[in-house]
């Protein structure tokens, strides 16, 4: 059972996904430059990038957004 008709024109899988109240997912290999000019390379098929600014593993997400009140989450 599927909601999409496989005969429709294919819709590409997004490379970037913004998760509600959470991180940004990046699919594939990317090099990120952080605010201090340091470069970080993704190593996983899908990587979560911090959007709340509180991660201890910046620029990657470490789940810290869940400790924030919903109003100040991304």
């Amino acid at each position: 059972m599927s909601t999409t008709d496989p005969h429709d024109a294919p819709v590409a899988t997004p490379d970037v996904v913004l998760c509600p109240e959470g991180p940004m997912l990046l699919r594939g290999r990317h090099v990120l430059e952080d605010a201090d000019g340091r470069r970080h390379e993704t190593t996983r098929p899908v990587t979560a990038v911090c959007r709340c600014g509180k991660s201890q593993s910046a620029p990657w997400c470490d789940g810290t957004h869940k400790l924030l009140p919903p109003k100040v989450r991304p």
Binding site: C19, P23, L25, V46, T47, A48, S57, W60, D62, G63
Partner: peptide
């Protein structure tokens, strides 16, 4: 820590 932050989403 980092793997599961992506996996949970």
């Amino acid at each position: 820590v980092e793997a599961d932050a992506a996996h949970e989403q």
